[in-house]
Design a protein around this nucleic acid. Sequence first.
DNA 1: TGATCCCGCCAACGT
DNA 2: ACGTTGGCGGGATCA
Length: 815
Amino acid sequence: RSVLKTPLKQAATSPVLTEIQPDCQPLTTPPKPKEIPPADPWTPTSNLKMLISAASPEIRSREQRRELSNDTSEVLQAKHCLQEHLLGDEYEKSQRSRKEKSLGLLCHKFLARYPDYPSTTENNYICLDEVAEELNFERRRIYDIVNVLESLHMVSRLAKNKYAWHGRHNLSKTLEALKKVGEENKYTQQIQMIKKRQYEHEFDFDGERNEEMARSFGSNDHSEMSFVELPGIEFRAASVNSRKDKSLRVMSQKFVMLFLVSSPQIVSLDVAAKILIGEDQFEDVDKSKFKTKIRRLYDIANVLSSLELIKKVHVTEERGRKPAFKWTGPEVLPNTQDTKLEETTSTTSTTCPPPISESIPSTEQCSKNLFPSNGKQNFTRHPSLIKLVKTIENDRRKIQSAPTSPVKISTSTDQNLSAFPSKMAQVPAMANHQLEGQSKKRKELKKKLSRSALACNLSSPEVVPKAKAPRTAAPSQQPAFMQPLGVCPPSHSPVSPVILPHTHSGVPYAIYLHPSQAHTVTTYSPSFMLQPLPCANVTGIKSINSEVLNKITTGEGDNQIATDDPTKSLTAKEKATLKSENSSQRCLKRTQALQENNLIKRYRSDEESLDTSLTFFPSGYLIPLTQCTHGNKAGFSDKEKAGICSLQHPTYSSPIAGVIPVTASDLKAVNIPAFHITPLNIMLSPTSIAAAPGLSNSFLNSSNTSSAQNPRSSVLNFTLPHVGLIPGGVQVPANPVLHHVSVSSQTENISQSSGNRNLQKKPSVPKEPQEPQAATENFFRTPGGPNTESSLSANSDGTKRISEGTQQKLEVYED
DNA sequence: TGATCCCGCCAACGT
DNA sequence: ACGTTGGCGGGATCA
């Protein structure tokens, strides 16, 4: 092993060993070796090398290079030579060599060694040295693979050279957790931002905007995000791993989050790289840095591809084709069902967002959620404000870094154990209780954390076991595993859910916007614009009836959002907001700013840490990027955008009466914070909506994932009018919301809607059994500092979660 | 060419 | 001191 492990240099030191090594598998490494390096004929392998080199020119060249650079290389070469020897065709190999050596292939080999679903009882230990030897690849590569696997909690480090193999047992939990965190981090929004920027660049928009946007993003802490752990598993590992960074792991998680959060579930490399870089968003990131990030992403992508979680695809954009990856792994159900929403996309139905279910923290949570949802991203800062923002950001960072590292709430459960089925079911409730209790205790920080945790739990009830089941093995074992998961979620929901009751439950909440209020509100802040009406207004139920109606009527936009994706809704919202921006931008900005401030304040008051993002808001005005932001990925064509924009203004007219059905998720994410207001809780604030870019994105995506564009535009159009409620300035925000609602919620919501009025309890929502795990999920942590955002942002996730969990609560609240 | 990404130097970290 | 990890980026391959 020794040989393998160490890099070339080492190898050089012990060339003999290397050669000697059994190495077993000729397969893997192709020989690079080639001619004799002039320099050292003496090596034992030299002969081989020569042979090989003769065989394959490529190898030769390589070796030559190496030799030039070092002698040490020889050793390696020697190895290769041997291997090749063994293999035989150097030639072919040389050709394939690269491919054969690919990380993906190595990963396949690696994975082949272990069952997807190892029996829980047995511990599968992985000895890196052994693996390296057996598979015959460089140690360094193993680290790459293991790091990614670790990020998915498929393995955990036990000790120095040892890892425990968990297989896919934890995968669903992990994905849920990641999704939550991703939502919290507003990745959706970020993605949109980036896209917008890109778009702008294309058009040669002025740099300011882009810069601003970038900054806003930059502010996002996600970059700082720490490794997301599952309760049981990672800890152990944690003890062992001390390595500070874990950047590859973290990157991997973030990368996965991007998939889980985006509706189409397609992430282009460049966007991912930018988001992961996060830090400097200004301008164009360092080119070199960007490049490096891309390289890393490829590494990660290769492993994820081997896991069949993603696959390469290409997305064609205006500019051309871009490499991207599509999620092919199990779907993670946040709470609601995203999928449903997506399906329904075009139809509009209103759903009522569940008001915030939880009594207690609801407000706090909401605030948190709101923030995140608000996602600075949506808004652009005024240039003058940038400085302030920066300073704020700095402060925020400090703050974040400190205290709030995410605490695992864990209650008792061991997530790891896949075997909890029966117990698991119970767990949820337990967890909830526990959580609540804990939260109280911890109140401040902890509250936040717990919330986030809860949210996480809720939101992701689990990955859907769906079945894509990439891997064969999985199925059998999964079941047990899955079940537990299903159970958990419920429990969680109660806690976090507070905010949103179950949205999808179909309850159709209708939120009415009072035109008058809206106006007034708008002036204040966007958030206010929409006020949730009490149940009575429920009219929103209608939403189900016909999207069309809503659209037509403009006055009422139902927002149903299927409970699931807040993000989606957000996206729509964002779009809307963007669009509206023009005319009323300023007003909106102000209002938003105000709202934001309020939110922030609340948020702060509620909890100390939280997101930095919040801080941003206060600083400046966030200008809704609105409309034209092409950012939306989905493809808004420019035309569409333009159309949208134009439409927007007109929309004013429509006063809305409307009820805006909001999905729980939406509410959570965006609204809650804003809402201070009504008893119902549910208030939606346009601003909030707008704020949550993520939602909008998701929305867009969901609706059309790929094709979304058209729908969107249409939707937007509709929505805009609806938005009209808002005074000129304000308008934008509202629109977004509406849009979301209409689009997303429709299908499922409808069912929910039956219960129109109040938030219904979760009537139907029968989502899935996911829950059980959710409880366990609580355990997951999100990284501390960065997490803060997550906690805050929980919105999208939270909403989902909430919706699920909260349904019960909803009932309570409804009236 | 640009997209991929292998390779391995070398610096943290542990022990 | 030495071994383990793993960030990082040059530059080779591939398409």
